[in-house]
């Protein structure tokens, strides 16, 4: 008896929704294998929720503005003021919650602008490696990378009016070249892959090759870097606001809070320590999330023995 002669295919093409669910399940498995990634995700989600709903979750929403209450100034952490109050009586916890808004806003805007710019330039330069396109893009990138980032941001913020928008412009200007470099490196090696050659020999357009063949294979490091960068942008924003070039008072910003509090160290330690911890936690959260995304998008996990 021969049980292997069935030639007719039993057609069983999974529907779009089952394919989607399966992909989701698999990605979650790869992401969550490292428990720290899940911790990162929880931190990031918590920060986002708190920032978005700050007016509702902050115990004293009014304290985010120009609020003064000398009666309750300089209070150490207690049940009423979980993280204490500052020198003019504002609740530190509420101010941190509101400061998250500016920090995330800045990170999102900086990345929304610098990421596409950097990625597209990197793709072009990498695919046309050795041509004038490559030369112009990459030399320009080199110029931007040659300037120390914080100094450039300081210079721009100083020339323009010091506020959140200008701080963002400053950070954006120095952020895109990193994506260009990252994608450039990947695109130069990917363009030699046979699947790119095959598409060229079929006659596919340059647009197709750049965005359908090459770009999808760069996404893993791009997303990983993006998650890490959110943390870095927030840190840089904090540094700028620490020196007074970011969000202006009375709107709270993390760097500015650390800076203000440092004058009252060590007596009012909570004024400095808690905003600093907030910065650390955000950055840690995004870093862990970045690691998780990298694990999730890593290919070639299924080697057969």
């Amino acid at each position: 008896m021969d049980i292997n002669t069935q030639t007719a295919f039993d057609v069983n093409i999974p529907s779009a929704s089952t394919r989607y669910k399966e992909a989701l399940r698999k990605n979650w498995y790869k992401f969550s294998r490292n428990k720290l990634s899940v911790v990162g995700l929880v931190i990031v989600l918590a920060v986002i929720v708190v920032a978005v709903f700050a007016p509702y979750v902050a115990p004293y929403p009014k304290h985010a503005g120009s609020f003064v209450d000398y009666q309750h100034a300089n209070l150490a952490p207690s049940l009423t003021y979980l993280l204490g109050t500052d020198n003019i009586g504002r609740d530190i916890l509420s101010r941190i919650f509101f400061a998250f808004r500016g920090a995330l806003y800045m990170a999102v805007l900086v990345l929304v602008i610098s990421l596409p710019v950097g990625v597209i330039l990197g793709l072009l330069a990498g695919y046309f490696k050795g041509t004038w396109i490559d030369t112009i893009i990459m030399r320009t990138t080199d110029i931007f990378l040659a300037v120390p980032p914080l100094i450039l941001a300081l210079a721009i913020s100083a020339v323009l009016k010091p506020n959140l928008t200008n701080a963002m412009i400053a950070v954006t200007v120095m952020w895109w070249p990193w994506y260009t470099r990252l994608v450039y490196g990947m695109a130069t090696s990917l363009r030699n892959e046979y699947f790119v050659t095959a598409a060229e020999l079929i006659g596919a357009s340059k647009f197709h090759i750049l965005f359908r063949e090459i770009l999808p294979n760069c996404l893993s490091p791009i997303f990983t870097k993006m998650a890490l960068d959110v943390g870095w942008v927030i840190l840089l924003g904090a540094a700028l606001s620490f020196v007074g070039l970011g969000e202006q008072p009375p709107t709270p910003a993390l760097g500015q809070m650390v800076s203000d509090g440092s004058r009252y160290m060590p007596d009012l330690w909570w004024m400095t320590i808690f905003p600093s911890l907030a910065i650390i936690i955000i950055i840690l959260g995004f870093n862990l999330l970045g690691d998780g995304i990298r694990d999730m998008l890593a290919k070639g996990e299924h080697d057969r023995g």
Partner: peptide, 14 residues
């Protein structure tokens, strides 16, 4: 007998 841990369980190779 050698098995590998993978996504979806043990790959029972040997």
């Amino acid at each position: 007998h050698v098995w590998y841990r993978t996504y979806g369980g043990y790959a029972k190779v040997l």
